[in-house]
């Protein structure tokens, strides 16, 4: 909790300084400090200073998003080929992708990654699976989705459902 509070203060200070741009005006700095403290107090009262306050502030998430950027670029190429070819050969498909993440953060990261990758989009999130609409039937490869899900769960240190049964009690 101290860690989330610290990260929240740092992010809010950076946000204030970015938007105001005045680093040497005492009035603006004091007002900014006051508003940061108010926000900190409010979020402490709302009890939202937990792990979800700063979900992506460690090296694993940065590595994951770097990997995701490469995937996004690759998927963009195949979508753009379909858009620009005169007879676009597409085969829209829907599949249910099993979701093994147990925390909300892990599920959101997984579904968000699916939507961010062009060519696949998460339509509905159920309890244990996601309905995915894909532009090409080749994109609905179960192994690829499982790989992405494992990486997403790893990036937010999610105890995946398979591992819970082994490690519990």
């Amino acid at each position: 909790m101290v860690r989330s509070a610290f990260i929240l203060v740092v992010v809010l200070a950076a946000y204030w300084l970015t938007l105001s741009g005045y680093l040497y005006k005492p009035v603006l700095l004091i007002v900014g400090t006051i508003s940061i403290l108010v926000v900190l107090g409010l979020s402490w009262r709302m009890k939202i200073l937990d792990a979800e306050t700063a979900p992506y502030f460690h090296g694993k998430a940065a590595g994951y998003y770097a990997w995701l950027f490469v995937e996004i670029t690759k998927a963009n190429m195949s979508v753009i080929k379909a858009v620009l070819s005169p007879d676009m050969e597409i085969s829209p498909t829907t599949t249910k992708v099993p979701m093994k993440q147990s925390t909300d953060l892990g599920r959101v990261t997984f579904a968000n990654s699916i939507t961010l990758t062009p060519g696949t989009i998460a339509v509905v999130m159920g309890e244990s699976n996601i309905l995915v609409h894909a532009l090409f039937s080749e994109m609905t490869n179960a192994a690829d989705f499982q790989d992405m899900g494992d990486r997403a769960g790893w990036a937010v240190s999610d105890p995946m459902l398979g591992r819970i049964e082994k490690g519990a009690s």
């Binding site: 963009n76 979508v79 379909a82 858009v83 597409i90 829209p92 062009p118 609409h133 532009l135």
Partner: peptide
């Protein structure tokens, strides 16, 4: 290039769900 291609995709694709993919391409890259 990606923005224009995404726009062309939004115009060309046959139904709503496929258009969504083209719009996503504009939004990300």
């Amino acid at each position: 290039f990606f923005v224009i291609a995404g726009t062309v995709g939004v115009l060309r694709f046959p139904d709503f769900y496929t258009r969504m993919h083209a719009a996503g391409m504009t939004d990300t890259l």
